[in-house]
Design a protein around this nucleic acid. Structure first.
Length: 266
DNA sequence: CGCAGCGCCTGAAGGC
DNA sequence: TGCCTTCAGGCGCTGC
């Protein structure tokens, strides 16, 4: 499930290879989630940026091609379109190369909009500062968390206090910061710890090329390695790496959270 | 306006 | 062995 480190890994791999490329042809799965891919035909890609989990290709006609990878999405460059039923969109570029968008579960989506006009993409329009940007500060994070009475993990996953965090890195950061996932309000000190923990785990995930539990592959088709560094996510029942108490898991707001009942008191 | 609940999707895993 | 059920979860949408 691509979160910030996975999306950024893909962005770094593709940015220079897509810059200046002309989109000659495109096609997509018939779902409206993906058909906007064809709207980019005839444009030239000027650059590839990222906001949270969204990839944004700026086009030379004043628009942006926006790609979200959902749970199982991946992007790759290939000489031709592979024979693969899970390819949901492709863009034929100049110099005989095809950008391939593969998404088994179709949770991803593609849009083509005037640059910066994100009203049809509310999660992008309303999202907070990217977790690895200078705008993500402890004080702003604390103030954003104070605005809502929802559980802290639910707020994180809303992308509003900070953009780019999903279940894996959210679980890890809550464990590092010692914050129970059922909490709805946390102190300024706890928010500061969580801020630092988020930056730490996201940077570590990026350094490891992302987390591959099952589907995730980078733009070269390779797996990440951060799954070997996870201390909390997916380790329910196993001993906490700090205190050896067995980790527990519970569902909050339809999301499974793993935590240490000792290190993350309610 | 905030938010709870549901739907979208498919493959893997577990139960019988 | 094989069928059925459950689960995973990011995000959009609906309705309270």
């Amino acid at each position: 499930m691509p979160e910030l480190p996975e999306v950024e890994t893909i962005r770094r791999q593709l940015a220079s290879r897509l810059q200046g490329r002309l989109i000659l042809e495109a096609d997509s799965h018939p779902s409206e989630k993906f058909t906007p891919a064809v709207a980019s035909i005839g444009a030239t890609i000027q650059g590839l940026s990222r906001k949270g989990k969204y990839l944004i290709a700026s086009l030379n006609d004043g628009r942006e091609l926006i790609i979200h990878l959902g749970m199982t999405g991946s992007l790759a460059l290939a000489p031709q379109v592979p024979d693969d039923p899970y390819i949901r969109a492709w863009w034929l570029l100049d110099r005989d190369e095809v950008l391939i968008y593969r998404d088994v579960r179709r949770f991803g989506r593609i849009r083509c909009v005037p640059a910066g006009q994100y009203d049809s993409i509310p999660t992008l329009a309303d999202q907070g500062p990217d977790a690895l940007s200078i705008d993500f500060t402890p004080e702003a994070f604390y103030q954003a968390l104070r605005k809502s009475k929802r559980r802290i993990p639910t707020q994180l996953f809303s992308q509003k206090p900070v953009a780019g965090v999903g279940n894996i890195y959210g679980n890890e950061a809550l464990w590092i910061a010692g914050i129970h996932p059922a909490k709805r309000q946390i102190s300024r000190a706890a928010a500061t710890r969580l801020h630092a923990a988020l930056v730490e785990v996201l940077e570590a995930g990026l350094a490891n090329g992302g987390t591959t539990l099952r589907d995730y592959r980078n733009a070269d088709g390779d797996e990440g390695s951060h799954q070997h560094a996870l201390a909390c996510y997916g380790r329910s029942g196993q001993p906490c790496l700090r205190c050896a108490t067995p980790l527990q898991h519970r569902t909050y707001d339809a999301r499974t959270l793993t935590f240490c009942p000792q290190c993350q008191p309610r």
